[in-house]
Amino acid sequence: MLSSILRIVHNKKVVPFVFLAPFMTIFLIFKVYPVILAVIMSFQNFQGVQSQEWVGLTNYQNVFNLVRFGQALTNTTVYTIGTLLILIPLPLILAVLLDSGRVAQSTLFRTLIFLPALTSLVVAGTVFRLILAEEGFLNLFLSSTLGIRPLRWLETADLALPSLILIATWRWTGINILYFNSGLVNIPRELYEAAVIDGASPFQMFWRITLPLLRPTTLFVVVLSIIGGYQVFVEPFILYTGGGGPGDGGLSMALLIYRTAFTSFNFGTAAAMGVILAAIIFVFSLIQFRFFGVFSKED
């Protein structure tokens, strides 16, 4: 009995599946199956494991009729666009400058600007709660240097998204510099040397050589930012103590899903929202990949 099991385990055809089994078991049970379950639940009125009934598209209709969902979708989209507008050009320019040889101690700067990426988003949230508070440092700084009246950052609906984008800028700039840097060092130096001989200005070299050759890296960072932006959760969750902030100004889709599931215990609706969020992320990723022509190059 044991020897026959051993013979099977050592069979050349079986070996790869033995190695794959642990990962695939956990992957199928806790990643693939929950997706299927969530899609099923999104078509059900789910009142616990014992009682489910099929309700067709009712959950989806409810979601789209929900004022808060529209607001969450708008907030999340504006947040994602805002982070893209800052977290692509800023780290790109900083990475190019750090790589240009015109900055002393560039490794030290890279390391220090990277430090925020090590803090958990929870801590980032608590620290910015303190800094953005009405009597906090940001208001003190703004009023003493620029004479701006103290703003109620955490209590004003229109300031919720700028606050969240500020946190994102702090947290992700260092990582994006790192990504752009690893793209930059892959650009052959000879191209720049040839351009210098041809009398190209640094600015021309940036537009004609650096930007085009950095496109795969830029695509990657854009896709990552969109996927991450649409999933923003911890920052508003901490900043507004689990709620959506003043007038739901900081309510993100992920936060609404969490609250629908674990505050209202409305699992069917939460599942439908999850499916919609996944669809948005999937479509954006596909558009990006097609736009940049990645599929045609690979395989």
């Binding site: 806790f30 929950p34 996927i227 649409y230 899903i257 969490y258 599942a271 999850g274 992320i281």
Partner: peptide, 24 residues
Amino acid sequence: FLFLLIVVSQMIPFHLLIVSLFLM
């Protein structure tokens, strides 16, 4: 196919899974 499945799964937002995983 497995490889593609794993790469695509990277795009799934965790919030789609939380209700199922919680019940599980």
